[in-house]
Write a protein that binds this DNA or RNA. Structure first.
Length: 821
DNA sequence: AGCACGCCGACT
DNA sequence: GTCGGCGTGCTC
């Protein structure tokens, strides 16, 4: 009987593909194993086995797979289910989900690059052919899969590479700039011939003449005593330990050459470098204790609990307590964090408590490190993983608890390539499937989650006092109109803010200034002819970056140098208009020449450790002021900060989007929470033109519930989430009219199906043109109670196919974003 | 999404 | 005459 497999391929085609297994692999393949297959005429890629069966496809002959990569599954059945659920819900393909789920180290593809492993020194393991292949690799540094294929001619390339990978001679990687240097340590142990007490003693005697060698052996036996040799010799000791004991290098080398000692290398996970020595006990305050007990109590009746703890209330300690309980009961735990917060203090704190049993899954780590965590989770070496969005796709088999910290964070929603999934919502779905519990935590919960808690679907636990003696900061609005009239502004600073900063510098306290706009100024303007430089591919002005001396498009990345005179009229009077973080930094340096000023935004945190460095410097260095974008609002915890300044609050609030109020409330509350986290009460100064604004008033009062109550009414009145689901359709084309027409046709068809009131738009995109494509946006509002979401999505799918098969619209692209945030 | 196949313009 | 432009149709 022939054996066939259905596989998921990493392509945006909504179906499985059926391949044939060669006889000798028929017994070996399992669901969840990876296979290498040829797809189309010239593509080779890794596919995932999701079904094994005996039915040959009727309409085409199945190709043979090229190779089976695993004998044991690397993906669990639950994950395969999850990939399909995400694909269905977010309207993309299982292949796209698999693509973000698997670290690229688990995907050999024709796009892969091959690099030699610089730490490989075992030429004797290689065949002649492999040796000559390695010579080419060393010479070329890295080669592509195709080039390797050409080099090998008739040889079976995949088998060949697999063997080299198994010998650790080569490394496969996706991007040329991400080189993997495995961290290796050298280990030493006695050859097994001597690994009993009497043999070791005989050996010691026989080394009588070689005093130095004897010394080495004695040192070794002082670390692993004679009576424990039989059990402990096997795992050996770090070579470093002998070196530290200052034994003779040459004597040690001689013993190794003689074969008395064996030396080998082990790869160590680089997470170990985070200190984990003192597994610390934590002490909960009575309020924290109570919160923890409430959460555990609610878990007996609710699958999801929302933990609303104000900024500085010490949510982390409560999390730790809950995590311990979950781990004690023998289940795996996943702790999700927004990308930006992961590198901060919280991870260090968790690591200190949980040590090596904790895995970290982060996009700043190399792919190989992500593979380490993947495998660690698979064979249950890691019971506890702290990770970003995509760690929801790790191969857990026994998950008992998922914590989503800062659950309101919009970065949990993936934006650009499909799948446009929301990690919090996927977490809830996955937990349901695995009978795990979910703990959502935030100082400013999303409207969606708080609504679920209010209506009793989620449990709710609140922690409303700050940890220790800390008080909530005093929040004050600074009326910029008044300051402008009284002419008390200095550049973009109100007198109130400047005075507070000055005072803080004197008192050796620190200040954080939040401005949600990077660069020096949003645009340039010629004072003579009013010329403003725009991006020629996008309908936005170019942002002025002073240090880099460039004008940059924040949408497509285009950049040009700053003109010295106006290119339109030749006037030298070109000035920067508006305020970005760079300008604030510059102006502060000018106003307070003696102060230390640091800036933290996308531009200053590009390089690998820049983020940690800035935080480290702010913590310990002579820094008075930290200026930054969103980045400064998340998870920072510094003792000496007691002033937070907020620029341009109005811009946040007036953003044309139904979520702008919620977002502004969250952002400003979060950044305010950075102030006064210890004994001294902090101050927050918010610069605004409109102090009477509803959202600002709730912020001043630190009144989350009040804000929620007022906001939820509006959401209900206009039928926005949480009362409805929103599916956003973005219609794009290089031809503006075509994009608009297609959008109108699509909107019309959806209106006919769903009714006028459920469709908004099409409207011009907020930025109408990006990378030369014109954007029109349609929103579908689907009431949660009444609508059959499944059927609507099915109809939409059909209409999308319908639309792009009309040859007029064939160049048009439609991006579907379910639950757009 | 890629990638090959296919049919029309400006070049050694 | 050919190289290569990107339209379109398919991938087990």
């Amino acid at each position: 009987m022939d054996v066939f497999i259905d596989v998921i391929l990493p392509v945006p085609i909504p179906q499985f593909f059926t391949y044939r297994l060669p006889r000798h692999l028929a017994e070996l393949a399992k669901v969840g194993c990876r296979v290498v297959v040829e797809f189309g005429k010239s593509r080779v890629m890794t596919a995932l086995v999701v079904k094994i069966h005996g039915n040959p496809p009727e309409k085409y002959p199945a190709k043979y797979i090229q190779e089976l990569l695993d004998t044991e599954p690397v993906v669990t059945p639950t994950q395969i289910w999850l990939f399909q659920w995400v694909a269905e819900y977010y309207m993309c393909t299982a292949g796209e989900v698999m693509n973000v789920a698997l670290p690229s180290g688990l995907k050999i593809s024709s796009q892969s690059k091959i690099q030699y492993n610089p730490d490989f020194h075992h030429d004797e393991l290689l065949t002649d052919l492999e040796k000559s292949f390695m010579d080419v690799l060393i010479r070329e540094d890295s080669i592509s899969y195709e080039e390797a294929g050409r080099l090998l001619g008739e040889q079976d390339l995949n088998k060949f590479l697999k063997s080299l990978v198994a010998k650790h001679a080569i490394i496969l990687f996706e991007e040329v700039n991400e080189r993997y240097k495995p961290k290796l340590i050298k280990k030493i142990r006695l050859h097994s011939d001597y690994a009993t007490d009497e043999n070791a003693l005989m050996l010691l005697e026989s080394l009588g003449k070689a005093k130095k060698q004897q010394e080495v052996l004695l040192k070794y036996l002082s670390i692993i005593p004679l009576d424990q040799l039989s059990e402990k010799n096997e795992e050996g000791i770090d070579k470093q330990r002998l070196k530290e004991a200052e034994v003779s290098d040459s004597a040690l080398a001689a013993l190794i050459t003689k074969g008395i000692f064996e030396q080998w290398e082990v790869q160590v996970s680089r997470f170990d470098s985070l200190e984990s020595d003192s597994l610390r006990e934590i002490q909960l305050s009575p309020a924290q204790e109570a919160a923890s007990d409430q959460i555990m109590g609610l878990f007996s009746t609710k699958d999801v609990v929302l933990f609303h703890g104000i900024t500085g209330s010490g949510k982390t300690e409560v999390y730790i307590d809950i995590i311990k309980k979950a781990l004690d009961s023998g289940t795996q735990v996943l702790f999700l964090l927004p990308e930006i917060a992961l590198t901060t203090q919280i991870v260090r704190r968790l690591k200190r408590v949980f040590g090596d049993t904790m895995g970290i899954y982060h996009s700043r780590f190399s792919d190989n490190e992500r593979v380490e965590v993947w495998r660690g989770v698979l064979d249950q070496k890691f019971q506890f993983v702290v990770g970003v969005r995509s760690s929801i796709f790790l191969p857990f088999s026994n998950l008992g608890l998922i914590i989503v910290d800062e659950e309101h964070e919009s970065s949990y929603k993936q934006f650009d390539p499909a799948p446009r999934y929301h990690a919090r919502d996927v977490a809830i779905m996955l937990a349901l499937k695995m009978k795990a519990r979910v703990l959502l935590g935030s100082a400013t919960p999303s409207m969606e989650s708080f609504y679920q808690a209010q209506t009793g679907k989620y449990g709710l636990v609140s922690l409303k006092e700050r940890f220790g003696n800390a008080q909530l900061p005093h929040i004050r609005l600074v009326n910029m109109r008044v300051e402008r009239e009284k002419k008390t502004l200095t550049k973009e600073f109100s007198s109130v803010l400047l005075e507070a900063i000055g005072q803080n510098i004197e008192n050796k306290k620190q200040s954080i200034i939040f401005q949600n706009r990077r660069g020096y100024a949003p645009y340039l303007n010629c004072q003579q002819c009013n010329w403003i430089p725009h991006c020629n591919q996008c309908s936005v002005t170019l942002t002025h970056h002073l240090n880099a001396r460039t004008l940059i498009c924040h949408y497509c990345g285009y950049s040009e140098s700053v003109p010295r005179v106006c290119p339109a009229c030749g006037s030298p009077h070109v000035r920067s208009v508006g305020v970005g973080t760079e300008r604030i930094e510059d102006d502060l340096r000018e106003i307070f020449p003696e102060a230390g000023v640091l800036r933290m935004d996308l531009d200053t945190t590009r390089t690998k450790n820049a983020y940690e460095n800035i935080i480290g410097e702010f913590e310990t260095g002579e820094v008075d002021i930290l200026v930054g974008t969103q980045m400064v609002t998340k998870g920072l915890d510094f003792d000496r900060v007691n002033l937070v300044g907020v620029f341009n609050a109005d811009k946040l609030i007036n953003f044309p989007d139904f979520r702008s109020g919620e977002r502004a409330f969250q952002l400003i509350t979060q950044v305010s929470g950075r102030a006064g986290r210890r004994e001294e009460k902090g101050i927050v100064l918010i610069q605004t033109n409109n102090p009477a604004n509803r959202v600002l008033q709730y912020i001043v009062d630190s009144d989350y519930e009040g804000f929620y109550a007022s906001e939820i009414k509006e959401r209900e009145a206009y039928n926005y989430p949480p009362f409805s689901r929103i599916i956003e359709l973005t219609v794009k084309d290089v031809d503006r009219n075509l994009a608009q027409e297609a959008a109108e046709v699509l909107a019309k068809r959806m209106k006919d199906y769903l009714g006028e009131q459920r469709i908004l738009g099409p409207e011009r995109g907020l930025v109408e043109r990006i990378r030369n494509k014109f954007h029109f946006v349609i929103w579908m509002k689907l009431e949660k109670e009444k609508m059959n979401i499944q059927a609507t999505k099915q109809y939409l799918r059909e209409e999308l196919v319908h639309l792009i098969t009309e040859k007029k619209f064939k160049s048009v692209q439609v991006v579907v974003n379910v639950d757009a945030v």
